[in-house]
Design a protein around this nucleic acid. Structure first.
Length: 305
DNA sequence: ACCCAGGACTGAT
DNA sequence: ATCAGTCATGGG
C-alpha cells in the first residue's frame, strides 16, 4: 500500500488495529471530518488534536506520522477503543437495511474530533456538499489559521476568526453562512455559550445549549454531539438520512411528518444509533446514487443478492 | 438551464 | 406548533 520511499521517521507511531479493523477511506470521507485529504501515494494527510499528521494502514497496523503524536491520542481520535462487534450486536436484529449498510463499510468508525472546529464545519455545512465543506475548511485555514509547515495551516481559534470581518468570511465562499459563523464566534468568545461546559452536560441539555448558537439547529447540534462530544445516541437527520428513513422504513406513508421520523429513530436503532446513522448515511451516499432511489424500495434485501 | 447539497431563520397561519 | 420563502454557492 505504502511506497518504500515512505521512511519510518522517529515520529511514526504504530497502533495495532482491534478486531473490526479501520476503514480509513470510509471513516475520513463520510462527512464527519473535513480536513483530511488523500495523497496520491495513498496515505491521508490531516490533523489530530491540532497537530499535522499523516496516516496509513499496513496490514492490521495503523501508522501515524507527525510531531507530538501519542499512540493514545491516535487510538482515541479514531475510536479504536470501541468494540464494533458490540455496536453491531446492539442494533435491531430484524433490520435488513441497517445490516446491509453495516456490511457495506464494516470498518467505518466515528471520530472524536475537536468541538470548536466541528462546530464551525457544520455551521458551514448548511445546503453544501461534502466536497464544498472541505473546500471551505481549507479556505478558513489558509485565510485565518496559523502556518504550521508551509501550506499547512491550523484551524483558526475563536480569536483568530473573531478579529476579522464578516466580509472576509464571505470571501472563503461561505455565502449566507458567513453571518452565522461570525455571530456564533462572538457568542463563543464572549462565553455566552461555552463548549467546555457543554461537554459536561447531559446530551439533551447539551443539544439545547448548542442550539442557542447562531446557525445551529437540531441537525447541526446532533452532528457536533456525535462527532465531537462522543454522544453515540445523537442521530442527525440530513436530507440523505431522511430519504433513507422515508424510502426504506416508511415506503407506504409518504406524508409521515419529520417529527415522527425522529421518534422512530429514538425507539428503533438502540443506544448506539449515532453509529447506525453513520452507516446508513455512508451507504446511501456512496452506493445508492440518487437516480436509483425511487425504485430501490421494491428491492427487498432478503430476496437474494 | 435546472436541480440538488450532512439547514437555519423568519414571518405568516 | 407547523409551513413556505429565503438565504449564496458550486457540482452534476
Amino acid at each position: 500500500m505504502i511506497a518504500s520511499a515512505q521512511a519510518i521517521s522517529p515520529f511514526t507511531r504504530s497502533v495495532t488495529l482491534p478486531s473490526g479493523g479501520l476503514d480509513l477511506e470510509a471513516t475520513l470521507s463520510s462527512g464527519q471530518s473535513f480536513s483530511w485529504r488523500k495523497s496520491k501515494e495513498g496515505p491521508w494527510n490531516g490533523w489530530i488534536e491540532g497537530r499535522p499528521c499523516r496516516v496509513w494502514i499496513e496490514k492490521d497496523i495503523l501508522r501515524a506520522e507527525g510531531p507530538d503524536l501519542s499512540s493514545k491520542a491516535i487510538t482515541h481520535y479514531f475510536g479504536l477503543d470501541i468494540d464494533l462487534s458490540k455496536i453491531l450486536a446492539s442494533f435491531p436484529h430484524n433490520d435488513p437495511w441497517l445490516k446491509r449498510a453495516f456490511a457495506f463499510a464494516p470498518g467505518l468508525r466515528l471520530l472524536r474530533q475537536e468541538p470548536w472546529e466541528t462546530l464551525c464545519n457544520f455551521i458551514c455545512s448548511a445546503l453544501k456538499q461534502v466536497v464544498q465543506i472541505e473546500q471551505i475548511n481549507t479556505n478558513l485555514r489558509r485565510t485565518f489559521g496559523s502556518p504550521y509547515h508551509p501550506d499547512h495551516y491550523t484551524f483558526p481559534d475563536p480569536q483568530q476568526l473573531a478579529c476579522r470581518s464578516e466580509k472576509e468570511l464571505r470571501e472563503c465562499r461561505l455565502g449566507f453562512r458567513a453571518r452565522h459563523l461570525y455571530i456564533a464566534t462572538q457568542q463563543i468568545l464572549s462565553k455566552e455559550v461555552s463548549l467546555e461546559k457543554i461537554a459536561l452536560l447531559s446530551t439533551d441539555d447539551a443539544r439545547t445549549e448548542l442550539c442557542r448558537l447562531q446557525g445551529v439547529g437540531e441537525k447541526v447540534a446532533n452532528c457536533v454531539l456525535l462527532f465531537a462530544f462522543y454522544r453515540w445516541e445523537a442521530f442527525p437527520i440530513d436530507v440523505w438520512v431522511e430519504r433513507a428513513l422515508r424510502t426504506l422504513y416508511f415506503p407506504d406513508q409518504p406524508k409521515i411528518p419529520s417529527s415522527e421520523l425522529t421518534n422512530f429513530t429514538q425507539n428503533h436503532f438502540g443506544p448506539y444509533r449515532g453509529y447506525a446513522q453513520q452507516f446508513l448515511f455512508h451507504w446511501m451516499r456512496k452506493e445508492w446514487k440518487q437516480k436509483n432511489l425511487p425504485n430501490q424500495r421494491k428491492d427487498h434485501p432478503t430476496r437474494g443478492d
